[in-house]
Design a protein around this nucleic acid. Structure first.
Lengths: 232, 232
DNA sequence: TAGATTGTTAATCGATTAACAATC
DNA sequence: TAGATTGTTAATCGATTAACAATC
């Protein structure tokens, strides 16, 4: 129990969950690690290793029962009960998150939205009123909130993270372009979504694919094939 | 040239870039790998190894010039020239991306937004008109577009990815809850932002921190200290 | 010059893949 | 039972960290 699961494994779990959902919807009852590995483009070995971190969910000669395995992963991820979430920062991104109804299928329910901007306080997003940051502490003490999505500019994010933690939040979904690790005690989980950084990685990959293509095409045409092979 | 850089390194580059930006704004001229490692909470060794994949940017006995290093990383990431981007899908998330002006500081400019919904076609977001998907191919042939952000429901995402690729897009920023790898040829870069999966990882981490805390607190109180230590 | 710090090689660590005995 | 496929151990691969000679 409580075995330390590597970050790499945790990163892959939601993807397994997604593929199993697609299979279940398609009416597939059982699947082998081999077949799943083909669909997901990973090795069957990795799938079996990953799952066995949490227990033996399969059966020799049969494979895995899709519905059962999916339910087990849901439990592992904490999707077997409602997770209430607040959104702190009602800018465009915060509003988009609050509007995204599909989170609810995965147990995540937005129960409050907060902002400092007086002009938008009182507006409603899907029946959820935008409230003033001033009432946030009281809200947290009177409601059962698991997760806070933080969509503020980086200037205000750290300060707000401290307020959240002080008022009992133990999970921060951080969209601000700053690191909270130094701010937040170690019993608080932080998951970063740094969109700018994701975009930069895309830009890097675009660039390096271009360079690779230019290189290989010129290699083939202008170089003796021996050297071209050597560079491959 | 064209050395294959590991994914792990590419993932860290934008974070270096961010920290160097903060340092430059603060007027810091030079920094050693040791000092940067303290601020970023990584090892100095890793910083030096990472940077040396791309060349020797430092100087023995001095460290790294902040402005110079930042500019070099910008070049590596392709931020030294304008990257035009379109947003395909003008839902809440697509609109949030189009509204996010800070991408521009990093060279990313939204030059078009597309949707199928006739009701919103013609509306403007920051001077950028929402256009019909029907005119997308023509737009791509008459404009210089590097990147397409894909913010459609998963049902339409794959089909649209094919259209984008057919019309010359080589970089897709994928927000749809589906994998495009099988759809897209290998000279097209795909960067996934699966928000639901990120949220699930947060939920997992929250859960496992809770379990760990419960465990250690009960260990200390109820077990002989030898065993408690052994489990630490 | 002496001190500081890089660039780079070598050692360690962890994650992935392969192999196969166990077993349904 | 025979065939299929898991669970798990062992082998390989890659990434991180440590160490230190080179050098500013």
């Amino acid at each position: 129990m409580g075995k330390n699961i590597s970050k790499a494994v945790v990163k892959r779990l939601p993807r397994y969950y997604r593929y199993l959902g697609v299979l279940e919807e398609a009416g597939v009852e059982r699947i082998s690690s081999g077949e799943l590995s083909r669909q997901m483009q990973v090795t069957a070995s990795q799938i079996r290793q990953d799952l066995n971190n949490f227990g033996g969910f399969g059966q020799q000669g049969y494979g895995y029962n899709v519905r059962y395995l999916r339910d087990e992963i849901a439990k592992i991820l904490g999707l077997d009960h409602t997770n209430n979430m607040i959104v702190v920062g009602a800018g465009h991104l915060g509003q988009a998150l609050a509007n995204y109804t599909k989170f609810e299928r995965n147990s995540f329910h937005v129960v409050g939205i907060f902002d400092v901007n007086k002009d938008i306080i009182g507006q409603k997003i899907r029946n959820i009123e935008i409230m003033s940051i001033d009432v946030l502490p009281e809200f947290l003490h009177t409601h059962d909130v698991e997760i806070a999505a933080l969509t503020l500019p980086k200037e205000n994010a750290r300060e707000m993270a401290e307020v959240l933690v002080k008022n009992g939040i133990h999970a921060i979904w951080n969209f601000a372009h700053t690191d909270l690790n130094l701010i937040v005690p170690e019993d608080v989980a932080v998951q970063n979504v740094h969109l700018s950084e994701s975009l930069m990685r895309l830009s890097y990959n675009l660039k390096s694919l271009r360079e690779k293509n230019m290189q290989t095409s010129s290699d083939v045409s202008s170089m003796p094939s021996e050297i071209a092979e050597g560079q491959e």
